[in-house]
């Protein structure tokens, strides 16, 4: 099998554009997920009535359904009710809907990992519930949950591969189009894998590094 290098070189701009789009969608998806996750975990932590059950239902719904169905429902279903969203907005909403619950679980895990004695010491010092959350629990919870947050970021980045299903010209669709038009299957798939590795490998290393930095106290270097 000979590799068609000309084809690969000519396809680079297409993949580059698609990769930036993937990164953009993932960036907004992850950012909004973090915000949703933080809000949800704070609601669960303070055990606010009614809101707490809504958050619980949301988390179960979002964790137990596939992103593809969520996207189809948003993009093809809800538009029938007169709600028109662009493909990119749909993708970002879908990713945030999915990611929000994962991030919330990560934060919750972190909050639960803060030892009881820390909370009791804070209370005995006369801190209010909000001060306790702000100065004692959240900083520690963040450091405990950083590894799951990192794993969720990678997970969401990988999930962006599905947004091609709602007509976004992402890496998957570029590849599918190139295979369909030029039959350069091997080259197109090679470029696809390389593009994902270029996105995911540095991200994976970056998150490992960040985890070590944030958990300085535990690792000690």
């Amino acid at each position: 099998m000979s590799i068609n290098w000309d084809f690969i070189i000519n396809s680079i701009p297409l993949y580059e554009k698609a990769a930036w789009l993937t990164l953009k969608l993932a960036f907004w998806g992850i950012l909004i997920s973090l915000v949703i996750g933080l809000i949800c975990s704070v609601i669960q932590y303070f055990k606010i009535r009614i809101l707490r059950s809504i958050v619980g239902a949301y988390i179960e719904l979002s964790r137990n359904t596939p992103l593809l169905i969520q996207l189809y429902f948003l993009y093809f279903g809800l538009t029938k009710l007169g709600l028109t969203l662009s493909e990119n907005t749909c993708a970002i909403i879908g990713l945030s809907f999915l990611g929000g619950s994962y991030m919330s679980e990560a934060f919750r895990g972190g909050i639960e990992a803060v030892s009881k004695s820390q909370i009791e010491s804070g209370l005995s010092l006369g801190l209010s519930k909000i001060q306790l959350a702000r100065y004692v629990i959240l900083p520690q919870a963040f450091s405990f949950s950083i590894s799951s947050i990192g794993a969720n970021c990678i997970f969401l980045l990988k999930e962006t591969s599905i947004v091609g299903a709602i007509a976004i010209l992402d890496l998957m669709n570029v590849t599918k189009d190139l295979i369909g038009m030029y039959y350069q299957t091997f080259e197109s798939l090679l470029m696809l894998v390389i593009a994902y590795l270029i996105i995911l490998l540095p991200m994976s290393f970056l998150l490992t590094w960040l985890e070590r930095k944030v958990r300085y106290a535990e690792f000690g270097n």
């Binding site: 137990n64 359904t65 279903g77």
Partner: peptide
């Protein structure tokens, strides 16, 4: 007109019923 809303809604619920 709204078939996609109902069908995708049903699929959503189906997956939920299996995974939950």
């Amino acid at each position: 007109q709204t078939a996609s809303l109902w069908i995708y809604g049903l699929l959503f619920i189906l997956y939920f019923i299996i995974c939950y």
